[in-house]
């Protein structure tokens, strides 16, 4: 449980703070401007990409073959920008984890692992791993919204607290989802193509 808390803490030095999960592009296009539109964005993200990532974290925690999971998650992530964002966050997490929680299974991960697999291996318990992953799928974009749109941190926190993160984690331990989000894929690719100043890596 402590591992899950540390991984979900925004002060964990895994480099997750440079990713907005599509929020920066959505904000730049005026698709997310205020608390209601942020709530809609986070809800959609949690129930698509969030559920997908949580399912893979749970599967990795159950001890399933990491190489197979890696290939299956690649197949479920058609956007190269999304694959790179997931692997970049996986690399960052792995770097911190090698010092904190060295293990044989951690060493069995590729050098460039998808983040949900790292979370699954580290947390060990499928439900806790899914919960951590589902929470991270919305907490990063939520804090990015505070920075990019100047939204009220108390209001944003209340939105996150009311999201069905636990329901998603419960579903994620029962299935290996394949849910896609066409709009998030389009936003992720457009973010990479966007010229000019970007605060976030994704």
């Amino acid at each position: 449980m402590l591992t899950a808390l540390i991984l979900a803490d925004s002060r964990f030095p895994g480099g997750g703070h440079v990713h907005s999960g599509g929020l920066e592009e959505a904000a730049a296009r005026g698709l997310v401007t205020d608390e209601p539109s942020l709530k809609s964005f986070l809800h959609g993200r949690l129930l698509t990409t969030g559920l997908l990532a949580a399912g893979f974290a749970a599967a990795a925690a159950r001890g399933e073959d990491l190489e197979l999971l890696d290939a299956e998650l690649d197949a479920r992530t058609p956007s190269p920008a999304q694959r790179e964002a997931s692997r970049a966050q996986g690399r960052g997490m792995l770097r911190a984890a090698r010092r904190a929680w060295p293990s044989e299974r951690l060493a069995a991960l590729s050098r460039d692992p998808h983040q949900p697999l790292v979370i699954g291996v580290l947390v060990g318990d499928p439900y806790e791993a899914a919960l951590t992953c589902a929470y991270l799928a919305v907490s990063g974009p939520a804090s990015a919204a505070v920075r990019l749109l100047g939204l009220d941190p108390f209001g944003v926190n209340a939105i996150v607290a009311a999201l069905p993160v636990e329901d998603v984690a419960s579903r994620a331990v029962k299935e290996l989802p394949a849910l896609g989000s066409p709009a998030l894929d389009l936003l992720a690719e457009a973010h990479v193509r966007r010229e000019g100043v970007r605060l976030f890596g994704s």
Partner: peptide, 13 residues
Amino acid sequence: GSPSIDSSAAGLA
């Protein structure tokens, strides 16, 4: 067919 996801910028926008 889930209105909250269909309308979300992180769903079908």
